[in-house]
């Protein structure tokens, strides 16, 4: 059955824009906050935590605008992965760091979109 909501394309575009924004925010936040000189694995773990925390206000706003499990699932992945990557960027400018984070968001959302397309519909026993 075809039951796509009337504004499916707009909803999908919103999810992609949200992924870019969440990725940029998480990556910038962890890049700024996690100090230089922290050992690699610790910096990644700290970055994951910081990334998750700094996106919470933006996530709450996005969820208020257009909630959905699509947003929850993507937000969890993007915040942790982009946050983890932030402290790994040596030097760089805020613009480039934000771009890298947005790239993480885009990749995660593309993967989830592809997985959803493969799973959507009747489940065969």
């Amino acid at each position: 059955m075809s039951l796509r909501p009337p504004h499916a394309a707009a909803l999908r575009a919103f999810d992609y824009a949200a992924a870019l924004a969440l990725g940029a925010t998480a990556c910038l936040g962890s890049w700024w906050i996690v100090p230089d000189g922290v050992p690699g694995i610790v910096a990644m773990m700290l970055g994951m935590l910081v990334g998750t925390l700094v996106v919470l206000p933006l996530f709450a706003l996005l969820n208020w605008i257009m909630s959905g499990f699509e947003l929850v699932m993507m937000g969890m992945q993007v915040a942790m992965l982009a946050g983890m990557g932030g402290p790994m960027i040596m030097g760089g400018t805020p613009g480039r760091v934000a771009l890298a984070g947005a790239g993480v968001g885009l990749v995660v959302q593309l993967l989830l979109h592809a997985l959803d397309r493969s799973l959507h519909g009747e489940v065969r026993p």
């Binding site: 059955m1 959905g68 499990f69 699509e70 699932m73 989830l112 997985l115 959803d116 799973l119 959507h120 519909g121 009747e122 489940v123």
Partner: peptide, 8 residues
């Protein structure tokens, strides 16, 4: 059983 989003 019908998957609406992922199998979530």
């Amino acid at each position: 059983e019908f998957n609406v989003y992922l199998d979530m």
